[in-house]
Write a protein that binds this DNA or RNA. Structure first.
Lengths: 245, 245
DNA sequence: CGAGGGTTTGAAGTGCATCAAATAGTGTGG
DNA sequence: CCACACTATTTGATGCACTTCAAACCCTCG
């Protein structure tokens, strides 16, 4: 049982250079949590004792105003870690976390993370790198939200989803329902629907339910990414080079 | 001369717990740069060899698209450090930096920072905390941009400026010209002007040139901060408590 | 088959951007 | 101290993107 958890934990990039000893202790003290759709893992402000790894499904991180409107912080797929920065936030979670569909996470004690930072410079360095990477990503999201319109944001999102697949004609599936994608991209569901329709006309993509076919990635990239500050394609697209202009 | 630099460097929170030795070496290898208004310190993508401390004036961090539209990353006052995270960004600056008025900065070698991270766990920890703090700030900015309208963003900005001063009637001066404030808050100068006018009517503030009088901070906070996710007042306001609703 | 959520479509409104022009402010040289 | 030049700021008019509210549609699952 713990063995199975260990496998998951080993695969976390943050623990790339960690000793088997640390990994073992983490696995020892961790527990697996099955979550049903809509289940809350923790709420903002709650005392933080664990950080988490998503092993199945999707976890939504968000904050909400008094009136109940949500600001989506992030939506994490399998393999991603969250809650680990709470070490620096007065041991309180800075957002709430909820499963957007049947999901599974592994909870690991933050205390081990703290110890490791103090004991292992190499690890502290990894964590710094991870935070810097995350920060860059945030900055990019910020820029997208300011400079791109709804259609371009969607296009950019699709391109990032397609990053693993081949050049040329590609088929992707939206990872979660359209309403959630919309809020992830900072727009209303209605706006998402309309913008997607326009995007079809402009870039020749095809949409059938939650599946999207892209004949010509370059055309989509050209339409969506022209506005970006400089890096092209977006880091997240994974270094694939698509001709500009 | 280097003595004078040392004083500035000592005051940087990041080096709170650093040894006199490190501080000395930093001062030794640092140099002071006088900048005139509009002067570029470095541009995005440039090889990063130094990080900087603002000792006078204001430094604008920004990126720009091919078409020349700028996205303001931050505008830093005296006492703030920037460029230090370039260690993690392939040694290239992730933004451009420019003085928005006659300013002075101290340039310090990034190499010393790298060494110190590897040599001193305590320091690595400080840096992690600093990055976490910065990140929280970014998240808040993000939230503001999404949830608040132009008037509320201005109100929030004023409240943060007023944080040091007393409860009750307060007078503040805008730190830089209105056009720059506008871009800092993600809006056009025209929008800023109009929104400020509306804010006068709504919250009873008074504006004369770049000076702003606030009779009733609570009223302004009430109008501007209701939308925020939860923390009230904003962390940056400095923990001052203003009655809600 | 019917209920309920997700999705689309329509109509109308709002906020901000944009373009254009007037006005206020500031620093300059005479 | 004034007039000019130049920039910052304000004001007006208009347009567009997105939101909001409302209703229809579609799909899935009990």
């Amino acid at each position: 049982m713990q063995q199975h958890l260990l496998e998951h934990i080993k695969a976390i990039p943050l623990f790339d250079k960690s000793t088997p000893d640390l990994l073992g202790r983490l696995a020892q003290k961790s527990r697996e949590i099955e979550m049903h759709k809509g289940q809350l893992l923790f709420v903002k402000g709650e005392a933080a004792e664990s950080f988490y790894l998503v092993t199945r499904g999707w976890v939504k991180l968000f904050r909400e105003t008094i009136e109940g409107t949500q600001a989506i912080v992030d939506i994490l797929p399998q393999g991603h870690v969250f809650g680990e920065t709470s070490i620096f936030e007065d041991d309180a979670y800075p957002y709430s976390a909820e499963a957007t569909e049947p999901s599974c996470v592994i909870a690991m004690p933050l205390s081990l993370l703290k110890q490791e930072i103090d004991a292992n410079v190499q690890f502290a360095r990894s964590m710094l790198s991870a935070m810097a990477r995350y920060r860059r990503q945030q900055e990019q999201e910020f820029e997208h939200l300011t400079l791109q319109n709804a259609q371009q944001r969607i296009g950019c999102f699709l391109l990032r989803l397609a990053r693993q697949s081949e050049q040329g004609p590609t088929e992707i599936k939206l990872p979660y329902d359209k309403t959630l994608v919309a809020s992830r991209l900072g727009m209303q569901p209605e706006t998402f629907s309309r913008a997607l329709t326009k995007l079809k006309q402009t870039t020749g993509i095809e949409v059938k339910g939650s599946t999207i076919y892209m004949d010509d990635i370059a055309q989509l990239a050209n339409y969506s990414c022209n506005i970006c500050s400089s890096e092209f394609p977006c880091k997240d697209i994974g270094g694939k080079i698509v001709s500009k202009s």
